[in-house]
Nucleic acid binder design. Structure first.
Lengths: 111, 111
DNA sequence: TCTTATACTTTGCAATACTAAGTATATTGT
DNA sequence: ACAATATACTTAGTATTGCAAAGTATAAGA
């Protein structure tokens, strides 16, 4: 039942969260999924089929840049995503938007 | 630019906000739009073309019940929407979901 | 050998905020 | 009287996105 609302409520915020996680250092997909899970106390459990399309969109928009790692003593190639300057600038704007929207929601719920 | 994110971030929460506004007493469309604007300090400025489809969905789901008013000393008919018991129960669940999701977002942004 | 974890890609579906257009009456200003 | 604005509801169409599911492939542990 509430799966529907949960899915909808996550729209828009996931891109912000991915950008935020990338803002301290470049990370690869699986790592982003783990950190998202840990930092949110198991609230954001992303499937890989959810994350990668987000990364591709961010890349298309020039907010992150992906580069394949030269297999450092391991075989499985990893693609590291790094936030761009444009990405940092956008992240700031999106976070302000989140404060505005979530603040507005709480005003109504508390009012 | 940020219109895209703003639109997405509102997904899911608008139904919750409409249900919340209806939880004290029945209201008609225009009134809901005004209260949404006032209580959110101009953050949620709904167009009628956005609100009514939400009301119809809520009605289809049995969360609200609409009834036409018998024109009380005025000519323009108004359709009043009233929250149902099912609607109150769902609202409680959706609000808990909102607390969970927005809490998770803030954990990541602050972490 | 089999299972699990790691790691990335792609297709297709469902849900919804919004724009735009349409219909109609009431009120206010000129 | 006329025009403009506010009130009030309806519907069609678009774009976006979270997710499930399936596919490809390597590494590590039982």
């Amino acid at each position: 039942m509430n799966d529907k609302y949960e899915k909808q409520m996550k729209k828009g915020v996931l891109e912000m969260l991915v950008l935020d996680l990338l803002s301290d250092r470049p990370k690869y997909g699986y790592q982003i999924i783990q950190e998202m899970k840990e930092k949110s106390d198991d609230i954001f459990l992303l499937k890989d089929g959810t994350l990668y399309p987000i990364l591709y969109r961010l890349e298309d928009d020039g907010l992150v840049a992906g580069r394949w790692s030269e297999a450092e003593g391991r075989q499985v190639a990893r693609k590291y995503y790094e936030i761009t300057e444009k990405g940092r600038s956008e992240l700031k704007d999106i976070q302000e938007l989140w404060q505005r929207i979530s603040g507005g929601v709480n005003k109504i719920l508390e009012g």
